[in-house]
Amino acid sequence: MTYAIGLISGTSVDGIDTALVEINGLEVDLEVKLIAGTTYPYPDTLRAKILAVGEGEPISMLEFAELDDAIATHFARAAREIQIENPKAELIGSHGQTVFHRPPPENGDRAARLGYTLQLGRGELLASLTGLPVANNFRAADMAAGGQGAPLVSKIDACLLAHPHKARCVQNLGGIGNVTYLPARQHPDWEGGIWGWDTGPGNMLMDLAMQQVTQGAQTYDSNGQFAARGTPCLELIDRWLEQDFFKQPPPKSTGRELFGQAYLERCWQEASEYRLSDVDWLATLTELTAASVARSYSDFLERRPDEVLLCGGGSRNGYLKERLQLRVAPATVLTTDEAGLNSDYKEAIAFAVLGYWRLKSSLAGNLPGVTGATQPMQLGDIYQPAIAS
C-alpha cells in the first residue's frame, strides 16, 4: 500500500487539482482509493500571467524562471495542505502547468518530427519544498519516442475503468477534450484495441466566451444554465468542424495554441453575420464541444461505445451532458463517478498513479497505440529531496 499525491493544473488554468490516494497493486490488479481531493486556486495575478504566456505573450528568461518557481511553490503548498489531518504521502506525481504544446507534424526533418511540450512547476523545487520524491515531466519520454505526449492517462483508464462486457469511451472534458476508447475486456485483443486522442475543445471556448459576455464577472457557465437558454447555430458548427484538426486521424493532440483566444475571436467574427444573442453564442460553442466529441467517435471508432463516461469540469455541465447524450445515442452518457472513480479529480488521481509507477516500479506509463510512440516508455523525471543533515 502506498499513499501518493497527484497534482495537475489543466489548460483552463482553474487551479491545482490535488488528490491524495491510497494505491495497491500495479496494472490489472491496480486499486486506487481517493482519500482527499481539493482544487487550490491560483492567485489572480499568477493565473493571468499563465494564461498570457499560454497565449504567446513574450517574457524574459528571468520572468520565465520566476513563473516556473511560482507555479512550483503553489503546487508544493497544495501538496502540503492536503496532508493536513490525512495520511502522509510517500511520493508526488505532478503533471505541472502546460504553457506550450506542439504535436509532432506528419512530416518534416528529424527535429520537427518530434513534438515539443512544456509544463512548468519544476520538480526539483517541488521536492525541496515538500520533502517528498517527485516524478514530473511525464510527456517528454513519450515524445522522445515519436509520440504526441498525450493523452497520457489512457493506461490508467484501462486499468481502472474497463468493463467485462461493455465498450466504453472515457471522455475527459477539461479545457481540451480527450478520450480513451476501451473495448470490453472479453475482446480477444483487448489491450490492442485501446485507443485515444484529443477530441478538440472541451470547456476552453465556453469559458472564454462566458468571460467575454459577462465582462469578466463569470469565468464559466455553471451547469450550462446560460447556454441552455439559447439555440445553437448548427450551420456555424458544421463550418467549424471542417477545421483540419477535426479531420486529422489519431493519434493527435492539441491545446490552447490552437483552440485559445485567437480561435475564439475568429469564431466570433464568423458568427457576426448570424447576429447571435449572448445565450445563442454560448449554446453554439457548447454544441461545438458536443458535436466534435460525437463526430470523432463516428469518424474514428470501428465500433461505437455502449457507454460514455465523463470526467473533468465539463462532466458537471448538465446542458453539455444533455447535448452530448443526444449526439452519441444509443450509448449511455454517465460520469466516471458512476463507475467508481471520482470525476472531479480523475486526472490528478491518474498522475498520482503515474508517479507511483515511475518511483515504485519499472512499468511503462504510455500506450503507444494511443500516443503514437514507437514503443512503451517509462514516463517522468525523478527528483529526490535533499536529506536533512
Rank of each mutant, 00 (worst) to 15 (best):
S296Y: 05
A348D: 01
L334A: 04
L309G: 02
V333H: 03
L334K: 14
Q325F: 05
G313S: 11
L309H: 01
E302M: 04
L334N: 08
A352G: 11
A331Y: 01
F300W: 14
E322G: 01
A339Y: 03
G313Y: 14
R304K: 13
Y297D: 02
L341N: 00
Y319E: 11
A331T: 09
V308K: 05
A329T: 05
G318W: 00
R304V: 10
V333S: 09
G313M: 13
S298K: 15
D337W: 10
D344S: 08
L301G: 08
T336D: 03
T332C: 05
A352K: 08
G314E: 07
G312Q: 12
T332A: 09
L326E: 15
L301S: 08
N317F: 04
S298Y: 15
E302N: 08
E307H: 07
F351E: 13
G312L: 11
S343E: 04
E338L: 08
R304E: 12
N317A: 08
A339G: 00
P330H: 06
A339H: 05
E307C: 08
A348N: 03
A350M: 06
Y319C: 11
C311D: 07
G314V: 10
G314T: 12
T336E: 02
D344T: 13
A352H: 03
P305H: 12
P330C: 10
R323Q: 13
G314I: 07
Y297G: 01
T332Y: 00
R327T: 01
R303E: 15
L334Y: 04
T335S: 15
E302C: 01
V328H: 05
N317P: 08
L326V: 01
E302L: 09
L324W: 02
S298T: 15
T335R: 00
V328S: 04
D337N: 15
G314N: 10
S343Y: 00
S298C: 04
L310M: 13
N342E: 06
G313D: 10
D344V: 13
K321D: 00
T332M: 11
A331G: 07
V328E: 05
A352P: 07
T332I: 14
S298G: 01
C311T: 14
T335I: 08
D344E: 14
N342A: 06
E338P: 00
A331L: 10
A329F: 10
L326W: 12
D299L: 15
R304T: 12
A352V: 05
E307T: 11
S296V: 06
V308R: 04
L341A: 01
P305E: 05
G340D: 04
P305M: 09
K321G: 02
D306F: 11
E347W: 07
Y345G: 01
S315M: 07
Y319L: 08
R304S: 14
L341I: 12
K321W: 01
I349V: 15
L334P: 01
L309K: 06
T332L: 12
D299T: 11
V333N: 07
A352N: 10
K346Q: 13
A331D: 06
